[in-house]
């Protein structure tokens, strides 16, 4: 999950490599750090006392200003005609012209639909998998075997997405293992990466492969925090193992689940940009092309900067809206909030 690159890859933040679990952790940390109100101090005395601390902040702030906030302002080219070689903020105000253009572009609505479908499949299929795996791991009695399964299942998380794409293409190729299995059971070899109807299956499967292990880390940590007395009480009430899991374990890790779900919803629109870019080809565009890949082709390859920036801004605003609403709903409904 590349949560941090919520609108495409160019500035895909470093953290995106770390996966959803990590971001949840980061945010959980924000939430859990109590802010003790310091005594009010004027800027003059604060600067006098802490100028060395402030000096440490200058370079990082410059980084955020130039590489994070300046591009946000750069989105103004979505409203202005941009001429390569001209001002980076565009030359001439054209209002919502580019937004009208893409809203009336049937290609856009197809990639919009694909984004929603892949995003929804990710939430429904990929998101629950680490929970299941963590629960299974938690039932193991052999500490060594458990550690072995964990170590192996984390591995795909550390592999470059280029390698992952290469592995996927090899396995699904005409002479690859999957087609050998298909033929073994009497089927005809399937050109997976040339048929649009297979792309979603291939994509989601590879997502599960890549993320399921690493995703268990925070759940396993949460599982250790479930109160042992609750299991005791459940047993006295005659609950069997399955009922204990259902009534004690799952409620116990619910805050973690909700936090990760909210973060996942926030990345809904940015679904798998780099991976899709590596995997797709014109034959599978009908299902594989998503907003971020479409705007990459329109913007970078065809140099329609303003048009693509308008699409990107639209995507980023939806992404921000999604995470804000998901967070608000979760705060109201279950009292878990990111901040």
């Amino acid at each position: 999950m590349s949560a941090l690159s919520s609108s495409g890859g160019a500035s895909g933040s470093t953290g995106s490599a770390l996966g959803g679990a990590s971001e949840a952790a980061a945010v959980a940390l924000e939430e859990q750090t109590p802010v003790r109100r310091p005594p009010r101090r004027t800027w003059r005395s604060a600067l006098k006392r802490d100028w060395r601390l402030y000096s440490l902040v200058l370079l990082p702030l410059l980084f955020f200003a130039v590489f994070r906030y300046l591009p946000m302002l750069g989105n103004v080219i979505a409203f202005r005609r941009f001429r390569p070689g001209g001002s980076i903020f565009g030359d001439e105000w054209v209002g919502l012209r580019y937004f009208e253009l893409f809203v009336n572009d049937p290609l856009f609505w197809n990639v919009f639909k694909n984004t929603l479908v892949l995003g929804a499949l990710t939430l429904v299929v990929v998101f629950p998998m680490p929970i299941v795996l963590a629960l299974l791991l938690n039932e193991l009695r052999s500490k060594r075997f458990k550690r072995f399964v964990q170590t192996v299942s984390y591995l795909p998380h550390f592999i470059s997405i280029v390698i992952v794409a290469g592995l996927v293409l090899q396995l699904t190729s005409a002479q690859g293992t999957i087609n050998q299995l298909v033929q073994l059971f009497g089927g005809d070899s399937i050109p997976f990466m040339q048929q649009a109807e297979w792309f979603r299956t291939v994509y989601i499967t590879s997502e599960v492969w890549q993320t399921v292990g690493w995703g268990t880390i925070l759940y396993l940590a949460a599982l250790t925090q479930v109160d042992e007395n609750l299991y005791e009480a459940a047993r006295i009430d005659g609950a069997n193992r399955w009922k204990q899991t259902w009534h004690v374990t799952l409620p116990g890790i619910r805050p973690t689940m909700i936090t990760l779900l909210v973060l996942n919803i926030g990345t809904f629109m940015a679904v798998g940009f780099e991976k899709i870019l590596l995997l797709y080809n014109p034959l599978v565009y009908p299902t594989a092309d998503v907003i971020s890949t479409y705007l990459y082709r329109v913007g970078i390859l065809s140099s329609n900067f303003s048009y693509a920036a308008a699409i990107g801004l639209f995507e980023a605003v939806i992404g921000l809206t999604l995470i804000l609403s998901a967070n608000a709903i979760s705060r109201r409904a279950v009292g878990t909030s990111l901040w």
């Binding site: 495409g8 500035s11 302002l73 705007l295 693509a308 980023a316 921000l320």
Partner: peptide, 11 residues
């Protein structure tokens, strides 16, 4: 910046 960034084109 975790939740909102400039996007591909402005970058």
């Amino acid at each position: 910046t975790m939740f909102f960034n400039g996007g591909l084109i402005p970058n």
